[in-house]
Design a protein around this nucleic acid. Structure first.
Length: 493
RNA sequence: CGGGGUGUAGCGCAGUCCGGUUAGCGCACCUGCUUUGGGAGCAGGGGGUCGCAAGUUCGAAUCUUGCCUCCCCGACCA
């Protein structure tokens, strides 16, 4: 309940600022379990909105939900060579299935008698267990495509964690589809990338670059990995979603074949795609300011908060009575409104609290307003206040919510444009990276060696090869070798 | 996993070097009154295995050893 002033400013210590936003907006906190977070009700309400909107988008593109096991037999994980190599270093392993009382009475111990025949891995992702299942489901081209999504939690044993951005356990959705042709699978991969970009930009108001990952940055087990990349306010990039064309890699590993129309037998083509609670981190670092969280209206659990300003209970009653029709009207319009009638807190406190929590619009109504038939309207995005006539206020708010939504997106887009720099040589590359940050569009000779060398020298990685990159002859900034298009570099989360 | 820091009331901290009254301060919490258009004021009150464990000592928040947490910096990653 109690809040303290957000003391740290973005300019002073960006990561301290981030941590304070997460705590003061009551989104999440560290848990008793190392690397795992507790997502608090307000943070989870945001995730639930994200889930609902994304889930509708998945359904509209023909997908259905299902649920696969939390545990994966070790042998499954090892079947696809690149896959196991990518995940081996961060797996939680279950080795026993029972505890017993310690002989010396000191508590409970793992029962050595209860060792599992085969260890189980807590899923870091579900390709293997799902493809082992698809093997049973697919015989004929008539069984294809399979378009399944699951909402789940996964575990990747990270060494260093940060709330939302990187936690040992995180929540996400993972889509897993199976197709008869490569073309169809590639189309699916790009379709879902498009869904993610649409969601990021239109719901979260986060502008993203759609692109393809380099071989080096590709998902373990994929043929091609596509991504959406966003730019945070500190000039670092953040991968906000990925969509993979798996080729026939997992079909081959799990022997998933189908009879073609022509009577042949072929391996199935696959895709997988996911976004996680990490998006909440992106949300914070895209829009929020030194006063706290800033939420885009389409995602905000509460879009409008009404704060009564009253002396005594009678005042509060008459305000409550006066806004009753307004609350009903908001509800009818589908606007999520909260009347903050807590009488133990003063208005100034409530103002500050709802600002920290990023509620897009605040309405304040006092005796003076009742007298004049007015209401004070305060915007969270640009901190402006105005007094409007009470009549027709709901319609005004409805329009204003949309305006705030597009203002947030436009502001973030302009920021990114300003922080995207075209660079022609390595000297400028380092200079821009250190002094300005952001995305750097530069030529690269296409080799993993050069990519890694640049990373060693500058800590910047190739975020993606943008899908809309123009063909343009140039020279690699490091080796001077010929290049046909620019790629996007940045330091990243 | 390596280097550095840290852990004392819900939160933020002092006390630890140099062991010794009943472990203290601010915020928050509870009660009452006055307040309420930008984080209220006064008065009273409650709350602590001093991260955990073992050891040294007449006596440990304070000294020793081990373990753990969280934060920052590096390597790894969505």
């Amino acid at each position: 309940m109690s809040q303290q002033l957000a003391v740290t400013k973005r300019a002073d210590d960006y990561s301290a600022w981030y941590n304070e936003i997460v705590k003061k907006a009551e989104l999440a906190e560290n848990s008793a379990v190392r690397g795992c977070m507790v997502i608090k009700p307000y943070g989870f309400a945001i995730w639930e909105r994200m889930q609902r909107i994304l889930d509708d988008m998945f359904k509209e593109t023909g997908h259905v939900n299902a649920s696969f096991p939390l545990f994966i037999p070790k042998s499954f994980l090892t079947k696809e060579a690149a896959h196991i190599e990518g995940f081996a270093k961060e797996c939680a392993v279950v080795t026993h299935y029972r505890l017993k009382n310690a002989p010396d009475g000191s508590g409970v111990i793992v029962d050595p008698e209860a060792k599992l025949e085969e260890e189980l891995i807590v899923r870091p992702t579900s390709e293997t267990v799902i493809w082992s299942t698809y093997k049973n489901w697919i015989q004929s081209y008539r069984d294809l495509p399979i378009l399944i999504n699951q909402w789940a939690n996964v575990v990747r044993w990270e060494m260093r964690t940060r709330l939302f951005l990187r936690t040992a356990e995180f929540h996400w959705q993972e889509g897993h589809t199976a197709h008869a042709t490569a073309q169809e699978a590639v189309e699916e991969t790009l379709r879902m990338l498009e869904v993610y970009a649409d969601f990021a930009e239109n719901t979260m108001a986060i502008p993203v670059i759609k692109g393809k990952k380099t071989d080096n940055e590709r998902f373990a087990g994929a043929v091609d990995t596509y991504c959406i990349e966003a730019l945070m306010q500190d000039g670092k990039a953040l991968q906000a979603g990925t969509s993979h064309f798996l080729g026939q890699n997992f079909a081959r590993a799990f022997d998933v074949k189908f009879a073609t129309k022509e009577g042949g037998l072929e391996l199935v083509w696959g895709t997988s795609w996911g976004v996680s609670t990490r998006l909440i981190g992106a949300l914070i670092m895209t829009h929020s300011d030194d006063e706290g969280l800033v939420l885009p209206p389409r995602l905000a659990p509460t879009q409008v908060v009404i704060v009564p300003i009253h002396k005594g209970e009678a005042d509060l009653e008459s305000i409550a009575e006066a806004i009753k029709p307004l609350l009903a009207e908001f509800k009818k319009m589908g606007i999520r409104v909260l009347f903050d009638k807590r009488d133990t807190l003063r208005p100034g406190f409530k103002f500050a609290e709802w600002e920290q929590k990023g509620v897009p619009i605040r309405l304040a109504i006092g005796a003076r307003d009742l007298q004049n038939q007015t209401v004070e309207v305060a915007r969270r995005d640009n901190k402006t206040k105005e007094t409007k006539p009470f009549q027709n206020i709901a319609t005004y708010i409805q329009v204003l919510l949309e305006e705030i939504q597009s203002n947030l997106f436009e502001r973030a887009r302009l920021f990114r444009e300003g922080k995207t720099t075209r660079v022609e040589n390595f000297e400028d590359f380092q200079k821009i990276l250190n002094e300005k940050g952001g995305f750097i569009a530069a030529h690269w000779d296409g080799t993993t060696e050069t990519e890694e060398r640049i990373k060693e020298l500058t800590k910047a990685t190739i975020r993606c090869i943008p899908l809309d990159a123009q063909a343009e002859s140039g020279q690699c900034i490091l080796t001077g070798k010929p290049s046909q298009k620019r790629v996007l570099f940045a330091r990243a989360y």
